[in-house]
Amino acid sequence: MLKLTYFGHTTFILESKDITLLLNPGIWNGEPVVPEDVDVRIIVATNHDDDSMGNAAEIAASAKAWFLGNEETVEKVRSQGGKSWLLHTLKAEEAYETPGLKISAYPLQKKNPTSGERYENLGLYIEMGGMKVGYLGDTVVQGPFGKFEMDVLIAPIGGGEVFEVKDAVSLCLDAKPRIGIPIRWTSPDQPSNFAKYVSQFGQGVIPVVMEHDQVLEIHWAAGNEFRHTLS
């Protein structure tokens, strides 16, 4: 079983019986999305922007959790006091494995909305709790995720720096995950449109729009029947 708790923006905690994973503990409008004392084993930020890595250094120090990111992000955490022995650089298309968790990172891109410049944002293919989760963080490209087999796909929809709704919907159509979860929306009609379009055109993909602090539990009933429960 895998439990996904949404903290808003792009932040999730994924929990299985073996491990707890924090994704993109960002800082938005000067406020960290998750408190420093959150108890997790591993933290991953998909890029070096504050709205992705946020207070990862403090959380890692407090929880003595591993921090994973690309080179630039790891360096930034290090510069913020992150302990070297807790930092791990994710290499493109190389899997990071620890008991109960396997993460494969794929270099995607985030766009500077002002200059149009693109820089690296990692897309994560996460295998934990018997589930396969695609987490695209802040991306404007889908990379190889359209071909991946996923139980859950988490994709941004806010436009500008990241996917627009149509791009996330298209990815759902391509990859056909069991569940599609939108993140990082900037207006309330974006998640509802995502849900509407995925429901209409997704050919079986279930859109799940999560609210802040809402928990999605997914598991295999009788070993082969996918079930999900949203708190």
Partner: peptide, 11 residues
């Protein structure tokens, strides 16, 4: 065969 390649995407 790549299903989709977004603008700027590189393989």
């Amino acid at each position: 065969t790549f299903t989709r390649m977004n603008p700027g995407e590189k393989k």
